[in-house]
């Protein structure tokens, strides 16, 4: 059974349809890249999977581990192992990273019927996990993302992934805003977190990240539809040709859409 199966997914925001029929099948152990020009709907797809309340699903199905994902509340999804690394992580003043992560971790543990950690135990665990993204422990006592640089915020997202060990991780442009060293650290971190049991969706605009995290499949999104699919070589092709050739594909009236008549 596939880990995630998206069937003809339609979603809109404020009455505007953004996703216009997405189909995607993801198995455990796979890494899928979703690429596409700005505004094509990549973040929308990521947020719909996470259950963001601003996005309304108007059609289709999402089956995760055999369950109807769309029926689960966002927090239930997270406890069931769905994780979204945000393109723009928000700052949470007054709440320390360690405090927040411990709460999230313990919610997850409780859900799995596993042991919760007290602050001291968690501190050790967090220190261990922080190595995955080479994050200094000084970040743990600071407020979540507050005053973090763009790159530090992205690393903090991957730290959260390392702590929560999701089954399905959606990383939305985790590479953007990272310099080459930070990109390497983040990519190595993600690679360490890859297992046979989990799956990763890498949403990215550039091919750059895919040199470090090699995807099994590449899907190209344009205007709310998947317009091309292939193996990792598709990313290279996109790198060469850019997105211009794709801009009109998938728009109403273009080849993939039924002609209005």
């Amino acid at each position: 059974m596939a880990l995630l199966e998206i069937r003809d997914l339609h979603a809109s925001v404020d009455g505007n349809e953004i996703l216009k029929g997405i189909a995607l099948t993801i198995n455990r152990g796979e890494v899928h890249a979703i690429m596409g020009p700005n505004g094509s709907g990549k973040s929308t797809l990521a947020k719909v999977l996470a259950g963001h309340p601003s996005y309304e699903v108007t059609g289709g199905e999402v089956i995760y581990e055999g369950k109807n994902l769309l029926e689960l509340s966002p927090d239930e999804r997270a406890r069931e192992g769905v994780f979204l690394a945000f393109q723009y992580p928000v700052e949470v003043p007054g709440v320390s990273n360690a405090q927040f992560l411990r709460l999230a971790y313990n919610e997850r543990q409780k859900h799995r019927g596993e042991e919760e950690l007290d602050p001291l135990e968690f501190k050790d665990y967090l220190k261990e996990r922080a190595k995955v993204v080479q994050m200094d422990s000084s970040f743990m006592s600071r407020s979540v993302n507050e005053g973090f640089s763009g790159g530090e915020k992205k690393r903090n997202e991957i730290l959260q992934m390392a702590v929560l060990e999701p089954t399905l991780a959606v990383l939305d442009e985790t590479d953007s805003g990272l310099d080459i060293d930070a990109l390497r650290i983040v990519a190595e971190g993600v690679n360490q977190l890859r297992t046979e049991d989990n799956a990763i969706i890498l949403v990215t605009h550039y091919q750059r990240l895919l040199n470090y995290i090699v995807p099994d499949f590449v899907h190209v999104l344009a205007n709310g539809r998947i317009v091309r699919e292939g193996g990792k070589e598709l990313a290279l092709e996109l790198e060469e040709k850019g997105y211009d050739w794709i801009k009109n594909v998938g728009k109403a009236g273009a080849s993939l859409a039924p002609q209005a008549g």
């Binding site: 945000f86 928000v90 709440v95 405090q99 709460l103 999230a104 919610e107 859900h111 929560l164």
Partner: peptide, 21 residues
């Protein structure tokens, strides 16, 4: 949403943000 998306129940997320405030 950020807190909830990490598995915190909405009431706990609210309390945590209020506490942070």
């Amino acid at each position: 949403f950020y807190l909830i998306s990490r598995g915190l129940r909405p009431d706990l997320a609210q309390n945590l943000l209020t506490y942070g405030f």
